[in-house]
C-alpha cells in the first residue's frame, strides 16, 4: 500500500467515523467536537486530491467561521443530554445503514476512479489557476451571491432592530 493510499483511507475513516459519532451522541458538545474532526478530515482529503486552496478554504470557512458560530449557539442553549432523551423506532439501524452504504460506495466506486497523486508537494499548485478563474469566469456568480448575502444581512439587521425597539417600548409601558 502506498503512503498516499494509507493516508486517504485514514482520513476517510476519520471523516466517516466522526460523522457517525455526530449521529449517535446525545451530547451536543461532543457532536460539535466530532464535526470539527469530520471537517478536518474533509480538508485533508481535498489536499490529498491536489486541491490545496480548497482544503485551506475548508478550514478557514467551516472551522474558523461556521463551527465557531455553532459553538456560540451551543454554549448559549446547552442542556444536559438527559433532558431530551427520546426514542425513535429503528433509529439506530437506519443510522448504521447509511454510513455503511457510504463506505460501500466509496470502496467500490470512488476509490479506483480517484486521480491520486504521488506527492502533493511535487505538483504545481492550483492557486494561480483558481484565482484567475474566480476573478474572470466565475466573478458574476460570486458577485450575485455576495449581493444576496448583503440583502440577508441588511434584512437581519432590520428585523433585529425592530425587535429591540418593540422590547424597549414594552419596557416603557410596564
Amino acid at each position: 500500500m502506498s503512503n498516499i493510499l494509507f493516508f486517504f483511507i485514514f482520513f476517510s475513516v476519520q471523516t466517516i467515523g466522526s460523522a457517525v459519532v455526530i449521529l449517535f451522541t446525545r451530547n451536543v458538545m461532543y457532536a460539535v467536537t466530532a464535526l470539527l474532526s469530520s471537517l478536518l478530515g474533509v480538508a485533508a482529503l481535498f489536499v490529498l486530491a491536489g486541491a490545496d486552496v480548497l482544503g485551506v478554504i475548508q478550514i478557514i470557512v467551516y472551522i474558523g467561521g461556521v463551527l465557531v458560530l455553532t459553538l456560540f449557539g451551543v454554549m448559549y442553549t446547552y442542556q444536559s443530554p438527559k433532558r431530551y432523551q427520546e426514542s425513535i423506532p429503528h433509529k439506530k439501524s437506519v443510522f448504521i445503514l447509511i454510513p455503511l452504504l457510504f463506505v460501500l460506495v466509496l470502496l467500490v466506486q470512488a476509490l479506483p476512479l480517484l486521480p491520486m497523486i504521488d506527492d502533493p508537494y511535487q505538483h504545481a499548485s492550483k492557486v494561480e489557476v483558481t484565482g484567475m478563474l474566480w476573478l474572470t469566469e466565475y466573478l458574476p456568480i460570486f458577485e450575485w451571491i455576495g449581493f444576496l448575502l448583503l440583502v440577508v444581512l441588511i434584512g437581519a439587521g432590520w428585523i433585529g432592530s425592530t425587535l429591540v425597539q418593540e422590547d424597549k417600548s414594552k419596557g416603557e409601558q410596564v
Partner: peptide, 11 residues
Amino acid sequence: SIVSIDVLGVF
C-alpha cells in the same frame, strides 16, 4: 486558518 483552530481549543 491554523490560528482559527487554536480558538476552538480555547473554547
